[in-house]
């Protein structure tokens, strides 16, 4: 029942506005189900990008997310990048969930010759919200694309499912390399797809310690650097909108034979790092 409720008439929209408005100072004014206007973004934009003009992405960056967040704690997001000679390469991508308590989910910075074409991660989405990606290209311009995600139904919440497990394995990392599906290409010229997984509660700090009655400070992965040999593939400054056990799947131009190195740091100052050899055979 809940899943099928949509913004079919102004009355429902008013009720929704009252609901979100009470929790969040400004809110998306729902004009219709698929493309509500975002008043939240109007006020958020200046805080993140100042007065700088943001133009439509026009395919330079594209975003895919489920229309409805099945699980509010784990909403898969796919970003694809396609640069041209005029724009130059993408230097950074900022990922924003308008209606979350901490809207800036992450800022990704890409290495000069990393050639990242695809990046998938998982987000917490607390309410009906736009999820947007803003790319800064070499020509100095900002280009934005966005998609609207409806909140999940049922008892799904943007919180940890198994808190004890998340803490018990804190900082453990896993890297997977996916073999290229297209055969017959030279290993040196094809992109490699990888998935980086980090065990971390990435928690919001919105929960209270039962003994002390103080709020537990937010504890999340703040910084992440992925490199191969001496060159940067990408770095990330993250926040609490990235799901627990942060997960990044990405394609980049790999150099066979050089190790992939990952360094992560969290808000408690803990550092995690790991290295994996990248044999030519795995490319």
């Amino acid at each position: 029942m809940f899943a099928t409720i949509q913004l079919r008439n102004p009355l429902v929209a008013v009720v929704l506005f009252a609901f979100f408005g009470s929790a969040i100072s400004s809110s998306a004014w729902a004009q219709n189900a698929d493309s509500p206007e975002s008043t939240t973004w109007s006020s958020l934009k200046g805080d993140v990008f100042g007065q700088k003009f943001i133009e439509p992405a026009n395919g330079i960056v594209s975003i895919e997310a489920p229309k409805r967040a099945e699980d509010a704690a784990i909403v898969p997001i796919d970003l694809h990048f396609k640069t041209d000679a005029a724009s130059g390469r993408i230097k950074t991508v900022t990922l924003i969930v308008d209606e979350n308590p901490s809207p800036v989910a992450a800022v990704f910075r890409f290495g000069v010759d990393a050639g990242v074409t695809h990046l998938a991660t998982r987000l917490r989405v607390n309410a009906y919200s736009y999820v947007r990606a803003i790319a800064e290209t070499e020509d100095g311009k900002l280009r934005m694309t966005e998609t609207f995600v409806k909140a999940s139904g049922g008892c799904s919440a943007p919180a940890m499912k198994n808190s004890d497990e998340a803490l018990a394995n804190l900082g453990k990392m896993k890297l997977r390399v996916f073999s290229s599906k297209s055969s017959g290409m030279e290993p040196m010229t094809r992109a490699t797809e990888m998935q980086l997984m980090i065990r971390h509660p990435n928690n919001s700090g919105l929960q209270m310690d039962q003994v002390t009655r103080y709020y537990i400070p937010a504890h999340f992965i703040q910084g992440l650097i992925v490199s191969q040999g001496n060159r940067l593939i990408m770095s990330m400054e993250g926040g609490i909108s990235i799901s627990e056990d942060p997960n990044f799947r990405f394609e980049f131009d790999a150099k066979p034979g050089e190790d992939v190195k990952v360094e992560a740091s969290d808000t408690e100052g803990k550092k995690f790092q790991d290295e994996w050899p990248l044999a030519s055979s795995s490319l």
Binding site: N126, P158, M160, Q207
Partner: peptide, 16 residues
């Protein structure tokens, strides 16, 4: 569990 979800539950069930 209720500390980290309670407020969210109270908000998210209001619509239905």
């Amino acid at each position: 569990a209720l500390e980290s979800r309670g407020t969210y539950y109270l908000q998210s069930y209001r619509e239905a």
